[in-house]
Structures are given as structure tokens and as C-alpha cells.
Amino acid sequence: MGSLVPADVAAESGFFATRTEALINWGRKNSLWPMPLGLSCCGIELMAMIGPKFDISRFGAEAARFSPRQCDLLIVAGTLTWKMAQACRTIYDQMPDPKWVIAMGVCSSTGGMYDSYAVVQGVDSILPVDVYVPGCPPRPDAVIDAMLKLQKRIEREHPLRRITRGPQAHAQETGSGRLDHQPNAGHELTHLDRHPHDPQHMREEAGVR
């Protein structure tokens, strides 16, 4: 808990003084509510992580809800297909702020071995991701490690600046694009957006009409 509770002061006087932000962050990081989005095999490891053997309730994150409106930590566990991408983005948008995302496994981090027309090549092309977990599948302890890293990150956030200086400034200061993340906003399509093996693209490159 670091500087949050000076133990001797608290013990003697029965109260302590701290920064509001530290208190908010302390509360947030120790009560993450994960939204388990188990899309394929990684979902099994995710279940193991929630279960009693690995037990994420030791870190205050055991309340896995299956409604995005009650969650603040999206764990994308598995292969995200483009058909599912719209649903995944909708789930993310339905989660109330503040919210964080863990990309669990190589599939959701980079597309993994599925270099395929059907699979999103990394969920970061549709969502802002906070922590990536490598592995196929990662062991539950690796995901718990990711959660601890995320807790460290939450500790450094400045929740009040969002209110006092506006979301844009906050996003710039913390380096997080989370609040106004619009991956493709204002992005007009160029020839680079085309897949290099798109037949139309190949014809144009070769100068064939």
C-alpha cells in the first residue's frame, strides 16, 4: 500500500491523511471486476485462474460478471474473429469508465498463428490494450502477473485530472489513449490499407487494368 496508510500514525490516532487520488487508485486497483471474454482455448485457462486453485480473489478481482455494465477489466481471452469484433467493441463500449483491457494469449495480442482472413490481427487494432500476456495459452499465473502489472499502472494514474483538466489533457499526460481512443478516427483509406495480396491491389501495382 506504500505511502497510502502510514501505519504508525493510523494506529495511534485512529485516522490518517492521504491524497485523494492515492485513495481512489488504491480502491480501484484492489477491486477490479473482470469481464471474461473467453473466445476460445484461452478461456479455459481464464476459468482456472478464477477458480480456487489460482484464485484471483487474493487480488480482489474475483467478481467476474457476465454483464459488461458491471465490469471494469476486459480480459480478451482467445481468438477474436472479425465477425466477433463488432460484438467485442460493443462490449468494451458498454463498460463504464474507468476501464482497462488485458489481451490474454498470442491470439488476442497479435493474431498468433492465425494469419488468416477471418481473424483480427491483434485486438489492439480495435481496442486500447493495457497489458499483453504472451503464451499459447498463458498459464493462469502469467495472467495474474499481468493483473499485478495492471495494478501498478493503476497506482500511477491521476483520476482527478480527468475531471479538473478534461479527458483530452488526461489522456495526453498519462500517455493513455483510453478515454478518447478512436483507432481509426479521421483515417481515410489509402492503398496501404489494402492487403498486399488483394487481387485488385496486385493488378494496380503491376499496372494492369
Binding site: W82, Q86, D115, Y117, A118, I126, L189, H195, H197, D198
Partner: peptide, 13 residues
């Protein structure tokens, strides 16, 4: 259909 596929990312965008 090309061997490497055509990503439907434009559709998503």
C-alpha cells in the same frame, strides 16, 4: 481467393 486472405478491416472501420 488470395492465399493469405483479405482482411475485412475496412468493413469494421
Amino acid at each position: 481467393f488470395p492465399h493469405q486472405g483479405i482482411q475485412p478491416d475496412r468493413l469494421y472501420r
